[in-house]
Design a binder for these strands. Structure first.
Ligand SMILES: [Zn+2]
Length: 284
DNA sequence: AAGGCTACCTGTTCGC
DNA sequence: TGCGAACAGGTAGCCT
C-alpha cells in the first residue's frame, strides 16, 4: 500500500534514528520475505553499521559501511517499524534486526508480498528490486519530454502509464488518481495521445501532490494500516480530492459534480466526471 | 512488443 | 449471526 510519500516518510524516520547504529543480530522468521538465502542475508548485515539511506520510487535502502545496502520493498502490506527491544511483536513479524540500545527494526507484512534484498546501490541493474524501476517521480532529471517519448504509441490509459514503475517510479493507485484529477485529465486518456502541455501539467501536479503528501507524512486511510517507522499516522487522507470519495462532492472550486468510482483491470479508480470529462481537455 | 490476465497472500468489510 | 464474495495502497510472470 505504501506509495512514494509513505516510503519517503519511513526512510526519513529510519535515517534519523539508525544512522550510526550497528546491526548486532538478525533473525529471519519467514525466509520467503528475503531474496537469496537467509544465511547470506544475515552474514551480509550482522556486525555492520548503517551509514546512510536512499530511495528510488517505492524501494528504499539502508546503506551499510561496506558499500552494500539493505533494500526494502513494502508492496501491499509491509511495514518497517522501529520498536523497543522488549515491545510485543505484532503478528506477521517476519524479520527482526537487533540494533543495540534496546532497539529493534521489525519487518511486518501480513500478505508477505514485500521483499528485502542485499544490494549494491551503485549497481541497480543487478538488483531484483531495482532493475525495473525507472526514474523517481521527484527526480530533477525527469522531464515531461522524456515521459512523452516513453508514452509515444502506447494505447494504455494515462493512469496505467503513471502506475508503470519503468516509466516513472513511486506513483501508486491513490496518488495517480489525485494527480489526474488536479491536471485535470481522464484516467483512460490514451498515454500516447497526451499532449506536451498536458504532460508538463502531469509532472507539475505529480510534484505538487507528492510534495504535499510527504509534508503530511503520507496517507493513513480509515483502516489505519500505514504507519511510519515510529508508528505515526500520515495526515494526507483528509486532503484527498477523489480517492475513496465515491458519491461525495467534487472539491474543485465551482464544480457541483460527484466523484465516481470505476473499475478497470481489477483496480478501482476515482474521478470527477465533470472536471475530467473526455473532450474537455484544457488547452495549454 | 504492448497489453491483458493471473498469481502471490491475509485481513476486513459488505451483501444476503 | 453466519458466510461467501468483494476488495485492499503492488508487481512479476505468463500468454497472446
Ligand atoms: Zn469536479
Amino acid at each position: 500500500m505504501p506509495e512514494l510519500p509513505e516510503v519517503e516518510t519511513i526512510r526519513r524516520d529510519l535515517h534519523a534514528h539508525l544512522c550510526g547504529s550497528t546491526i548486532h543480530g538478525l533473525s529471519v522468521v519467514h525466509p520467503g520475505v528475503v531474496l537469496g538465502t537467509p544465511e547470506t542475508f544475515t552474514d551480509a548485515v550482522v556486525g555492520r553499521r548503517i551509514v546512510g539511506s536512499g530511495r528510488r520510487g517505492k524501494v528504499m535502502w539502508l546503506d551499510l559501511e561496506d558499500g552494500h545496502a539493505i533494500a526494502i520493498h513494502l508492496r501491499m502490506s509491509g511495514q518497517a517499524l522501529l520498536v523497543d527491544e522488549g515491545a510485543p511483536r505484532p503478528p506477521h513479524t517476519h524479520l527482526i534486526a537487533d540494533l543495540g540500545g534496546r532497539r529493534a527494526l521489525l519487518y511486518v507484512d501480513p500478505r508477505r508480498f514485500g521483499r528485502l534484498e542485499i544490494i549494491d546501490p551503485c549497481a541497480p541493474q543487478a538488483s531484483v528490486l531495482l532493475r525495473n524501476i525507472g526514474p523517481d517521480a521527484l527526480s530533477a532529471d525527469l522531464c515531461a519530454e522524456t515521459l512523452r517519448t516513453a508514452a509515444a504509441g502506447r494505447r494504455i490509459g494515462i493512469k496505467q502509464f503513471l502506475l508503470d514503475q519503468r516509466f516513472i517510479s513511486g506513483i501508486g493507485n491513490i496518488y495517480a488518481a489525485e494527480i489526474l484529477h488536479r491536471v485535470p485529465l481522464g484516467p483512460a486518456t490514451p498515454a500516447g495521445r497526451v499532449t506536451r502541455a498536458e504532460m508538463e501539467r502531469i509532472l507539475e501536479q505529480t510534484h505538487a501532490v507528492l510534495g504535499e503528501a510527504i509534508a503530511a507524512c503520507g496517507t493513513t486511510l480509515a483502516d489505519a494500516r500505514y504507519r511510519s517507522a515510529l508508528g505515526r499516522s500520515g495526515e494526507f487522507a483528509c486532503m484527498l480530492r477523489v480517492y475513496g470519495r465515491e458519491g461525495e462532492p467534487c472539491r474543485t472550486e465551482g464544480c457541483t459534480a460527484r466523484i465516481q468510482r470505476r473499475t478497470s483491470g481489477g483496480r478501482s479508480t476515482y474521478l470527477c466526471p465533470a472536471c475530467q470529462r473526455a473532450g474537455r481537455r484544457r488547452r495549454a
